[in-house]
């Protein structure tokens, strides 16, 4: 379950940023999660609560900002929306797509005190 590892990564960033940004407690975490990032949101929420326990982010709220998948279609020469990695181009049906959006998982913003 690599959502657990992701949450450990998030916690490390929160702890590190606490020194830089001078905060003691994290109330809300906004994550940008792309549709193609391979992250199971339910598992992420579950792991988040478990991993944050006893930390500066215990009980913090997790807000997910979904980002739609996007790819560059080589035959069409334009960006097209994709819901899954193996989707064909909605215009020409080609699979010659290069994903260029919606594969990110980023910590976007925090509400801290």
């Amino acid at each position: 379950m690599h959502e657990m590892s992701l949450c450990e990564g998030i916690l490390q960033t929160l702890e590190q940023q606490a020194k830089v940004q001078d905060y003691q407690k994290v109330r809300t975490v906004w994550l940008e999660i792309g549709a193609l990032a391979g992250v199971e949101i339910d598992a992420l929420r579950f792991s988040f609560d478990v991993v944050m326990e006893g930390s500066l982010a215990e009980g913090a709220k997790l807000e997910i900002i979904p980002v739609p998948g996007q790819a560059w279609c080589l035959p069409c020469g334009i960006n097209v929306p994709v819901e899954q990695l193996y989707d064909p181009c909605p215009h020409c049906g080609s699979h010659q797509l290069q994903v260029n959006g919606g594969d990110q998982m980023r910590i976007k913003e925090l509400e801290v005190e």
């Binding site: 490390q12 910590i107 925090l110």
Partner: peptide
């Protein structure tokens, strides 16, 4: 007054790895 504020981080979750 608790000093609640917003902090922008913009950091990849996998940045450490």
């Amino acid at each position: 007054l608790s000093q609640v504020r917003m902090v922008q981080i913009e950091q990849d979750i996998l940045a450490k790895n």
